[in-house]
Design a protein around this nucleic acid. Structure first.
Length: 628
DNA sequence: GTGAAGGGCCAC
DNA sequence: AAACGTGGCCCTTCAC
């Protein structure tokens, strides 16, 4: 946890052992890459004071000295971005008066050599500061078996304080220390003999971290972000682990489904081209050549010429009502479906499988949304279609199982907690079916006589409310007239009056405060022009939604850490996370026990925030990523 | 050639 | 701009 009163480091006074080090004479130090200003001067002086560690004895001495500090700045230089692909070249560890650069190309490869480093960095009494700590954690864990325990991540801290700007080390040092860093050597060659400039650069990136943390702590404290910072810091190790683990994909299964889709794509493309050519060839601007089926302007103009009543959009929901009357529209929808599969879920996924692990290793952005949700890319394993053909390709390797656990209706339960609406509270406490109950009220029928369509309608209504749905959208969504949609919403909020009041207040607070908070204290800011009505209503909707979505993210991140800790030493590893779902892979004989641990820990995390509604995490043991 | 912008659509 | 929130990825178009 970032301390409110950072105390002076014990390492401010040089230990006697330090004298034995041969420090580089100042004359040999290259021109500093840091420009002068008042605060830069201190860091610049320090950056001359570094020592490259290339032997076992010096390593011990370095660790002795570093041990005296309460916080250590840590940074890595590597030959690749992914630990599976390259070498950890340097580890720079910095305390206020000294920086050590461990050169792993020169140090003996014996793992025992690094034991003092492991003891040093895994000691929970000492905070390890880094910028984008996930990177350091992945490399240290994969290459040296070191797991950082107590961290301060200056990038995450910066993001919590202000989501709206990017937080690379350069920006962050400028903002908090008014320090201008030159990052041009970041992508230099860290393979061979390193220049003085490179070593200087490496040392400086670690040295800046301690003053940076001290400059950030008051901002965290003043903004009430200490709890959420701790929450985020504790989740880093989990995301690092998930990225390292990767998730197994059955290549052959994926490829065989892809072959099928490619075949369909070919057929449907030809059919669509034929329909279009017959109906619109004479009048298209594109002469005899085929229309590019992926070009919206070309498709739009062709459809218009064929008499399809369209404005400017050709989205699915616009086309859907037209598909029965116009075969070309139906064919286009078919085409869009296969095209999406080919372009989004085809060869690109096979290409992203890492040869050395047979898995995909995505990148997670820990605070990927201002609400605190994590985002994912390269590839985005949070957007795999839920259809069986795709999900079954994500399966447990031989002898292992998947334990898939997700929260049951977490956002609606959070909404019940936040609003304290008696109807919602009662529904969840009694274990009643909320959607059925809502339908019962909205349609004025006894709960046991609610029809399936009515329940489905109520379900969409309940979820729509979380997003701040309006009558217009509800009308479009459900195909009911606007007046009826308005009446439905009126009825809905008459049923859940306290919910209505809560959401109105949340919307107004977001506008008045230009911000809102989640239950961990996470701050979501809004910058908008109060005279812009559209902007104001947008902020109102965000203000209703962000505390709900964001508290979901808080709970989920807490659960990640609890689950991760509880699974340590077992056969289980987390392989994917999707906002309210954790996918764990484990030995098949352990699956039952693991599933109980995971759901217990997820429930425990939720209960730390949600006290008035039962929180359920439902596990399933599967061979494939398909629940049930 | 490169990159932003817009449309569309996948997930929760 | 479907006045329902949060993302990422793919494709085309268009400006530089």
């Amino acid at each position: 946890m970032p301390e409110t009163h950072p105390h002076k480091s014990a390492a401010n006074t040089k230990s006697s052992t330090a004298r034995r080090f041969t420090l580089r004479p100042p004359g040999e130090t290259p021109k500093p890459t840091i420009r002068k200003n008042s605060r830069a001067a201190a860091v610049q002086t320090m950056s001359e004071n570094y020592l490259v560690v290339t032997d076992h004895e010096t390593l011990h001495l370095a660790c002795d000295q570093l041990r005296q500090a309460e916080a250590i700045g840590a940074d890595c230089e590597t030959t690749e971005l992914d630990p599976h692909d390259g070498d950890l070249r340097l580890l720079q560890l910095s305390v206020p008066n000294q920086t050590f650069i461990f050169d792993f190309h020169k140090l003996p490869p014996n793992p025992d050599t690094y034991r003092p480093v492991k003891l040093l960095l895994e000691d929970t009494r000492r905070k390890v500061i880094s910028h984008n700590s996930k990177f350091e954690q992945k490399w240290l864990k994969h290459k040296l078996g070191i797991e950082l325990q107590t961290i301060f991540d200056t990038q995450l801290a910066g993001t919590l304080i202000d989501y709206s700007v990017s937080h690379n080390l350069e920006n962050t040092a400028k903002k908090y220390l008014n320090l201008t860093l030159d990052k041009s050597l970041q992508t230099s060659n860290w393979q061979g003999e390193l220049s003085e400039e490179q070593l200087q650069y490496a040392a400086r990136d670690a040295q800046v971290l301690i003053p940076l943390r001290e400059a950030m702590i008051p901002h965290l404290v003043q903004n009430g972000l200490v709890r959420v910072a701790q929450l985020e810091f504790e989740a880093v190790a989990v995301l690092a682990d998930i990225e390292l683990n990767g998730i197994f994909i059955d290549r052959e299964m994926w490829a065989s489904h892809l072959a099928l889709v490619l075949h369909q794509h070919e057929i449907i493309s030809r059919e669509l081209q034929q329909i279009l050519a017959a109906g619109a060839r004479q009048t298209t601007l594109f002469g005899e050549t085929d229309i590019n089926l992926n070009s919206h302007p070309q498709i739009l103009s062709a459809l218009k010429q064929m008499g399809v009543p369209l404005e400017s959009a050709t989205r699915e929901n616009v086309l859907l009502p037209l598909k029965d009357e116009y075969p070309v529209v139906a064919k286009l929808l078919d085409y869009r479906g296969v095209e999406k599969n080919v372009s989004g879920y085809g060869q690109n996924w096979l290409d992203s499988i890492k040869i050395s692990t047979d898995r995909v290793h995505p990148d997670f952005t820990q605070i990927g949304a201002p609400t605190g949700r994590t985002s994912c890319s390269n590839p985005n394993v949070q957007q795999v279609p839920t259809t069986k053909e795709y999900r079954q390709c994500f399966r447990a390797p031989a002898g292992r199982s998947l334990v898939i656990t997700d929260y049951s209706q977490i956002e609606l339960r959070i909404l019940a907690q936040l609003s304290q609406d008696p109807g919602l509270l009662h529904a969840f406490r009694s274990g009643a079916d909320l959607h059925r109950m809502t339908a019962s009220h909205v349609f004025n029928v006894p709960p046991d006589q609610v029809a399936k369509e009515q329940r489905d309608f109520a379900k969409r209504l309940n979820f729509g409310v979380v997003y701040g749905i309006g009558a217009q959208r509800l009308s479009n969504m459900t195909g009911t007239p606007l007046e009826e949609a308005e009446a439905t919403l009126t009825k809905y909020f008459a049923t859940y009056r306290q919910l209505d009041e809560h959401l109105r207040a949340a919307a107004q607070d977001a506008v008045n405060n230009r911000s809102c908070r989640t239950m961990s204290g996470r701050l979501v800011r809004y910058n908008f022009d109060p005279s812009d009505r559209q902007a104001v209503s947008s902020v109102r909707r965000q203000g209703r939604n962000a505390p709900i979505q964001g508290t979901g993210a808080d709970i989920f991140k807490r659960s990640l850490r609890l689950v991760y800790d509880a699974l340590r030493g077992t056969s289980a590893q987390i392989v994917n996370i999707i906002h309210d779902e954790i996918v764990v892979e484990c030995g098949q004989d352990d699956a039952q026990a693991i599933s109980e641990i995971v759901s217990a820990k997820m429930t425990e995390a939720a209960t730390e925030y949600i006290t008035d509604v039962p929180m359920l995490a439902e596990p399933a043991i599967c061979k494939e990523w398909v629940k049930g």
